[in-house]
Design a protein around this nucleic acid. Sequence first.
DNA 1: GGCTAGCACTCGCACGCCCAGAGTGCTAAC
DNA 2: GTTAGCACTCTGGGCGTGCGAGTGCTAGCC
Lengths: 340, 340
Amino acid sequence: MIDERKQRILRAVIEDYISTGEPVGSRTIARKHGFNVSPATIRNEMADLEELGFLEQPHTSAGRVPSDLGYRYYVDHFVRAVPADHRLWQFMRDRLALRAREIGAAVRAAARMLSEASNFLALVSGPHLESARIDALRIVPVGGQRALFVVVTDTGIVENRLLELGQPLNPAEVERINRLFEERVCGQTMGRAALAVMKDLAMELRQYGDLVEQTLEVLDRPAADGEERLVVGGATNILRQPEFRDIDKAQMLLGSLEQEETVLELLGEPQPRTRARVVIGHEIRVAEMQDCSLVTASYRIGGDSWGQVGVLGPRRMDYAKIISLVEAVARALSESLPRR
Amino acid sequence: MIDERKQRILRAVIEDYISTGEPVGSRTIARKHGFNVSPATIRNEMADLEELGFLEQPHTSAGRVPSDLGYRYYVDHFVRAVPADHRLWQFMRDRLALRAREIGAAVRAAARMLSEASNFLALVSGPHLESARIDALRIVPVGGQRALFVVVTDTGIVENRLLELGQPLNPAEVERINRLFEERVCGQTMGRAALAVMKDLAMELRQYGDLVEQTLEVLDRPAADGEERLVVGGATNILRQPEFRDIDKAQMLLGSLEQEETVLELLGEPQPRTRARVVIGHEIRVAEMQDCSLVTASYRIGGDSWGQVGVLGPRRMDYAKIISLVEAVARALSESLPRR
DNA sequence: GGCTAGCACTCGCACGCCCAGAGTGCTAAC
DNA sequence: GTTAGCACTCTGGGCGTGCGAGTGCTAGCC
């Protein structure tokens, strides 16, 4: 589609623009990148590339700037993720392992690391628990009329809720309920499966209506009000980007990040693969973010629960670096969290 | 110290400045605020007020602007918190009550409400658990070699941790440990008291060294890695303030808010009183925040655990409104969280 | 046919300039 | 003590200008 030399020029323009942030002119390309042709020739090629949609001009007589299409071509053809520096990777994994007991803490730490290492904005979504397997689920009476309802999954996550019982429960009853839970619910996945089984149980345990009611609630929306579902790190980094010197733009962007729903949707469904996904400019379907790019990857926890990590930065980012960073953090997170 | 008329003028200047954001001149005061004297007279008075340190001039031949001292005088003498609108208050309390089961969720909701209602930045610190009373504390075996360690306090907060045991525990051992916990630790407060008792127990339970070790850790830093200790809401509101059109200033400020330690210190020790505390400009001991004011109040949960809510905005804020808002949210939070 | 030198042209940006407007402080008179 | 008058100061915006970077085009060269 575009010949060898055009490719080299496109690449040179993009890499120059990424490192300087200034529109790049034909002189620069001819001089700095070892082309043995004159600026005029480069100009002709650049005019072609512009016509093809890979480059843009902010205004006549400025240099060229990559378009979304240009970046896309660049990412697809020239960027191969370098595996992250091994020492860095170990460092991250170890630091995450320290908080692995508490998923929320690990997720927050990941967001922090990601934003600090990238100098951009980090997004990490908590794991989807729908397919986490229930390892244990139990009622523990806690004085008087209260009982603690706990769920332990293979992800190590513990959902719990203090139940207010209408009546006190005697040990035999507790025993019976717990046995039922153990026999019927353990081994199921958190989502619909457990809910269905639980609804059956509700019949048999009719006399404890309120109790069962409340346990159903917990299973129905795991982590809905306990752990947060989304962590944003280093939001202020955005303000360092020249493309956001415009306060209003920055405010719009940061504002839209406060809409959890939007961002979760943006991060997309976790996908069982290790490679990062790159979304560029207008490919992001959120108006405020259209001069950003987003790099995401999935992490896995337990048997089959997935979450997403991502970096949101200016389109003008070092894709190779960010991609490997994001992949590394996703992997570190997966490996440091409880295995099964 | 300053006479009646000077007071009126000071007040007029501040209120005018608060509502317009522009330095206010003698004409404006004389005209808008029903003084029956000429601008020249006002000018003389304003010169005095400046000499006394209550007003400042951004530059010769601009109007006057209140100094920190001026705001301080204003807040101490002229601002009395209007009790918040009753309907709003009820609305807030009810909305908080919905999340009261999970303290973290309630705290996040409070931060959100506070930032939305004030249009400034909201800070809410999680409750200090040091003086929460332990209602129950127990080990629950969870399959194989794992056990769940749970702590329930009078605040309703449940600390828990999945313990990896070196060896499996038989029911009798579990029984014994739990009885010891119940007899010795329940009723203590979370902080030093419980820790001391627990250390004694450590001797008696020497053979389960690892287990006791881990429980000590949990008690030692309650909520340290589970719930977050600080929630920031509406950070972007800051960008709407004219005093932060300067990106670099805004970035410094938002950056310093990411230092949890700093902010927690700033919020200060919760104090058992319902009135708000106002900290103005340089009274805030954080360089980046010196053209802000901070209004904080304490909320209470359980018997004796306190946390702080606060609003950080430009010095030029409507103090009466913000003070009553902050007090209202603190009260709503206290009343909607589990009583004992 | 592709490449290049030369050249006129186009912008954006920084700089300096100037002026209007707002507000002051001072003085002298009431 | 108050006020009118006046000279003075400072900011901010509007405007013109020159410079530099970079382009597109044309004509000639290999």
